[in-house]
Design a protein around this nucleic acid. Sequence first.
DNA 1: CAATATGGTTGTATGTTGCAACCAGATTGT
DNA 2: ACAATCTGGTTGCAACATACAACCATATTG
Lengths: 148, 148
Amino acid sequence: MVKRICHGATNCPVARSLDAIGDWWSLLIIRDAFRGRRRFGAFQKSTGAAKNILTTRLRGLVDYGVMEMVPASDGSAYQEYVLTEKGLDLFPVVIALWQWGEKHFFEPGETPPVLRDRRRKKPIPELAVLAADGRRLRHTGTTLMPQF
Amino acid sequence: MVKRICHGATNCPVARSLDAIGDWWSLLIIRDAFRGRRRFGAFQKSTGAAKNILTTRLRGLVDYGVMEMVPASDGSAYQEYVLTEKGLDLFPVVIALWQWGEKHFFEPGETPPVLRDRRRKKPIPELAVLAADGRRLRHTGTTLMPQF
DNA sequence: CAATATGGTTGTATGTTGCAACCAGATTGT
DNA sequence: ACAATCTGGTTGCAACATACAACCATATTG
C-alpha cells in the first residue's frame, strides 16, 4: 500500500501482510468493513480519515485484493466497497487486535465494548494459538518462528 | 506511537491497539522480537530500518509497555530490548498476520517459511475465532462487532 | 429544476521518513 | 596502554506522506 522501497521481495509472510494492510488507516477501514460499513462516506465518518487519505487507502486495499468495488446495494448509481474473501480472512487479525486492546488499554473504571457472538448471545472467548494436538501454545523463546 | 491527532480518546480497542503498534516498523520489530532478536543492532539488520527510525520505534514500544530495556544477557555493559508480558500477548496478532500472508501472498511456486511448533515438530494449525461453545465462528455480516 | 448529498480531486502547510554523516562510550587486538 | 573497531545512538537535510480546506462533477431529493 504505502510504497516500500526497502522490502520489495521479502520472504516473510508477516512483512508481506503488512505491505497490504500494515497501516493505521487501512486497518481501521477493515475494522469498519467488518462492522458493516460499505460506503465511502460511511468510512469517512467512522474512521475520521480525510477524503484524500481514504481515497488512497481504499484504492490500495482494492489493488491488494482485500476489498472490491461493487454496485450499491440500494440500487442507486453509487458504488460500495466490500471485503473480498481474502479480506474476510483478516477476521482473526482484527479479533486479535481487538482482544489485545481490550485487555491492555482500558483502565479498571472503563468498560470496553464487548465483542460478542450475537447469534449465541455470548462473549467471544480469547483467541488462542493452538498446537497440532489442540493444546494452547505459549511463546517460549525458540518454540516457533523460523529464521528466513 | 505515531502521534494521533484525530483519535485521542476513541473507545475502540482496535484503534487503541493500533496507536501502540499500528505501524509497519513496530510490527516488524515485534515479529523479530518473537524470533529471538534482542539487540539494537540485531533489529536493525533483520528489519532493515534506519537507525533513527529504529530508535523512535523502540522508544515508542517501551513507552507503551510492549517492550522493556534490560541489561544485556551476555554480561556486557550494553542493553537489550525484550517483550514484556503485554508484548508477549501479541502472539496471536503476529501469528494471524503470518498465516494471512502465508495464505494470500505466495505464488503457487513459492514456498513460504512454515510456522511450526518445534517441540512437537508439527506445523501450527490455522488460527480460528471460536464461539463460546467452541464452534468455529465465521464472520457473517451482523454476527459480531458492536457499534461504539 | 434548484438544493443538497455523494464521492471524489487538487492545492498547500506541516509532519514523518530515509539516508548519510557524525559521535561517545564499550570492547577487542596487540 | 592504546589504537582500532563495534555498539548504540543523534543530527541535518532532502524527499515523501498527511491533514485540512477548497473545489468540482454527477446523482438524488424536494
